[in-house]
Amino acid sequence: MSFIEDIKPVLLLYVVGDTLTTFCALQTGMFYEGNPVLSHIFSIYGYTVLIPLKIGFMFLLYHVYKNANRYYWNITRYAVTGIGLLATVSNMAVVLNG
């Protein structure tokens, strides 16, 4: 399998889903970024800095793909997908209830 094939769920949930729902949730004014590091970065550079951060994370993920054995790669990609799913669902709850 290729890198792109392997990360389709990551792209859908962690990159696109989390990014879009984070932007929407932050626009409601009823939501704040719970990650203190990201919250600090957002306060300095604004929310759009999330896009280059996600792109940078994809480079890091590609490094893991190329250098880790298949077992650790699978743990990594499934964990990131799970985080993306949780973040997207959490953000959607704020957007729909806000």
Score class of each variant (00 low, 15 high):
residue 26 L to G: 00
residue 98 G to L: 07
residue 71 Y to N: 09
residue 77 R to H: 06
residue 31 F to R: 13
residue 91 N to R: 03
residue 38 L to S: 08
residue 4 I to K: 12
residue 26 L to Y: 09
residue 40 H to Q: 11
residue 36 P to F: 08
residue 67 N to S: 14
residue 22 T to A: 12
residue 30 M to W: 05
residue 75 I to Q: 04
residue 29 G to M: 00
residue 7 I to Q: 01
residue 66 K to W: 07
residue 71 Y to P: 03
residue 72 Y to T: 00
residue 91 N to Q: 04
residue 84 G to C: 08
residue 7 I to N: 01
residue 2 S to T: 15
residue 28 T to E: 07
residue 68 A to D: 05
residue 48 T to H: 13
residue 53 L to R: 09
residue 79 A to N: 01
residue 44 I to T: 13
residue 96 L to R: 05
residue 12 L to D: 01
residue 11 L to D: 01
residue 45 Y to R: 00
residue 32 Y to W: 07
residue 94 V to T: 15
residue 63 H to A: 11
residue 66 K to D: 06
residue 1 M to A: 15
residue 49 V to Y: 04
residue 71 Y to C: 05
residue 21 T to E: 05
residue 26 L to F: 10
residue 65 Y to I: 03
residue 43 S to Q: 14
residue 20 L to W: 06
residue 74 N to M: 08
residue 6 D to A: 13
residue 64 V to G: 04
residue 93 A to V: 14
residue 69 N to F: 09
residue 85 L to I: 15
residue 72 Y to F: 13
residue 38 L to G: 09
residue 55 I to P: 00
residue 39 S to R: 11
residue 18 D to S: 11
residue 59 F to L: 15
residue 59 F to Y: 09
residue 86 L to E: 00
residue 15 V to T: 10
residue 57 F to P: 06
residue 20 L to S: 00
residue 21 T to Q: 07
residue 73 W to R: 15
residue 93 A to I: 12
residue 56 G to H: 09
residue 83 I to Y: 04
residue 86 L to M: 13
residue 6 D to P: 01
residue 29 G to V: 00
residue 71 Y to I: 11
residue 83 I to R: 03
residue 24 C to A: 14
residue 46 G to Q: 11
residue 57 F to E: 09
residue 8 K to Y: 12
residue 22 T to P: 02
residue 56 G to L: 14
residue 64 V to I: 14
residue 1 M to V: 14
residue 16 V to W: 09
residue 1 M to C: 08
residue 88 T to P: 03
residue 10 V to Y: 06
residue 15 V to D: 01
residue 17 G to R: 01
residue 27 Q to R: 13
residue 62 Y to E: 07
residue 51 I to A: 14
residue 85 L to Q: 02
residue 77 R to T: 00
residue 11 L to R: 10
residue 9 P to N: 11
residue 54 K to A: 06
residue 75 I to L: 13
residue 58 M to R: 01
residue 20 L to H: 07
residue 53 L to M: 15
residue 12 L to F: 15
residue 42 F to K: 03
residue 54 K to C: 04
residue 53 L to I: 14
residue 24 C to E: 07
residue 91 N to S: 10
residue 43 S to Y: 00
residue 31 F to K: 14
residue 57 F to G: 11
residue 35 N to A: 07
residue 89 V to H: 03
residue 83 I to A: 12
residue 68 A to G: 05
residue 62 Y to S: 07
residue 74 N to P: 02
residue 70 R to M: 06
residue 6 D to W: 00
residue 20 L to C: 11
residue 94 V to R: 09
residue 34 G to C: 06
residue 38 L to R: 01
residue 95 V to L: 13
residue 87 A to G: 12
residue 43 S to W: 02
residue 22 T to G: 11
residue 86 L to F: 13
residue 84 G to L: 05
residue 3 F to G: 12
residue 64 V to E: 02
residue 88 T to S: 06
residue 29 G to A: 08
residue 52 P to T: 07
residue 34 G to V: 00
residue 30 M to H: 12
residue 7 I to H: 02
residue 50 L to P: 01
residue 66 K to V: 08
residue 28 T to L: 04
